[in-house]
């Protein structure tokens, strides 16, 4: 039943939305009702001039709307007056005709108004329903967005926890390696602390670029900053090139070691000492980094290899899948690293 009702109201909406359909229906309803009225004229007792016209007006108003319904009512009224209210065949107006017409007008006006009120109420209801549907869609969208945000938040929290644990594991490795075979534990603790600080500075440089990758120059300058006494001791130059997080940390640790050694024994231990830092990307993802000290004291190759030299000569090159070489010419210490920058998915 509700299906028929829905279909009927749906049909009414479609007809009312199209003026052509609405007025066509009004004309058809009038013609059909007039035709049926003529056909049934000999069957009906006197006094029923409007019998077929009432359904036509109600149907037209319901299906086609107020104005087609009103015009149909007017046409039906005139037809009934002319053909079916005695004396037929003219528009004579007398008291009984006036009463009959007034009765007709009263009935059709009430019918049209009631149907119109019903339509308005239905239109208003449909409007409300559309608004409710739109609100529901909006609510679903907002809920979806909130769920996405929460999911993103959880991913970020997991990622942060993962990175924190990896950083702590690196700190643990730095500490254990610094203390390993140490004869002076106080000095070893200071070295570990300085290395952790170098890691922290490199992390800052990476955090500024969303931790995915950094710029070599930023990493180099950040690592050198704590060792720069402000007297133009460093000559830093190289192209702008992206470096992934892991190699960036490795490079920062290497620079820290090189700068610490330069401060203790090399170019930074004398007033005129200079350090030239260069890097190049000659092609095919190649990465060359060099640290050349000048005007420094004569230094000899150390006899014993500590964690610092293991870091610069063995560990850091593996971040770049390459090799490093430290040399001790008369002009000053030199360190050359040759490798590749690698792709993001390898890091």
């Amino acid at each position: 039943m509700s299906t028929i009702r829905r279909q009927l109201f749906g049909l009414s909406d479609r007809v009312r939305a199209s003026p052509l359909k609405a007025w066509s229906l009004a004309i058809c309803a009038f013609i059909v009702s007039l035709y049926v009225r003529f056909l049934s004229d000999h069957l009906l007792p006197p006094g029923f001039p409007y019998l077929t016209f009432f359904p036509a007006v109600i149907l037209t108003t319901f299906m086609a709307g107020l104005w087609p319904g009103a015009v149909c009512a007017l046409a039906c009224g005139f037809a009934a007056w002319y053909w079916f209210i005695p004396p037929s065949g003219n528009f004579e107006l007398n008291a009984s005709v006036l009463v009959a017409l007034a009765f007709y007008a009263g009935v059709v006006i009430v019918d049209i108004l009631l149907i119109q009120v019903m339509h308005k109420a239905l239109d208003s209801l449909q409007d409300e329903r559309r608004k409710s549907d739109a609100l529901l869609v909006e609510q679903k969208r907002l809920l979806g967005e909130q769920r996405d945000r929460e999911r993103q938040q959880r991913i970020l929290q997991r990622e942060l926890s993962h990175r924190m644990k990896n950083t702590l594991a690196m700190v643990q490795a730095v500490v254990s390696q610094s203390l390993r075979n140490a004869t002076d534990t106080k000095l070893a603790a200071e070295q570990a602390s300085a290395r952790i600080q170098a890691l922290a500075l490199a992390q800052d440089a990476l955090t500024a670029t969303d931790w995915e990758a950094g710029d070599v120059e930023t990493v180099v300058r950040t690592a050198i900053a704590p060792h720069n006494d402000g007297h133009n001791r460093f000559d830093i130059s190289g192209p702008s090139v992206a470096i992934a997080a892991q190699p960036a940390l490795g490079l920062a640790l290497a620079i820290h070691e090189l700068a610490t050694n330069a401060t203790k024994y090399g170019a930074l231990s004398v007033p005129d000492g200079k350090i030239i830092v260069r890097w190049q990307t000659p092609g095919d993802n190649q990465f060359h980094f060099s640290w050349t000290e000048a005007n420094g004291p004569v230094i000899m190759e150390p006899k014993r290899s500590g964690f610092g030299s293991r870091l610069t000569e063995r560990i850091v090159p593996t971040y770049f899948k390459g090799k490093a070489q430290a040399t001790y010419p008369a002009g000053g210490y030199e360190y050359h690293l040759r490798g590749t920058l690698g792709s993001e998915d390898e890091t």
Binding site: S176, Q177, R180, L311, I315
Partner: peptide, 25 residues
């Protein structure tokens, strides 16, 4: 272990404990 520093630390840990270590990245 893909992280070179952690790899070296693990190698040292294992070797210090008296085992022979080999590594893969």
């Amino acid at each position: 272990e893909d992280e070179p520093l952690l790899r070296l630390a693990a190698i040292d840990l294992v070797e210090d404990a008296g085992f022979q270590a080999i590594a893969a990245a």
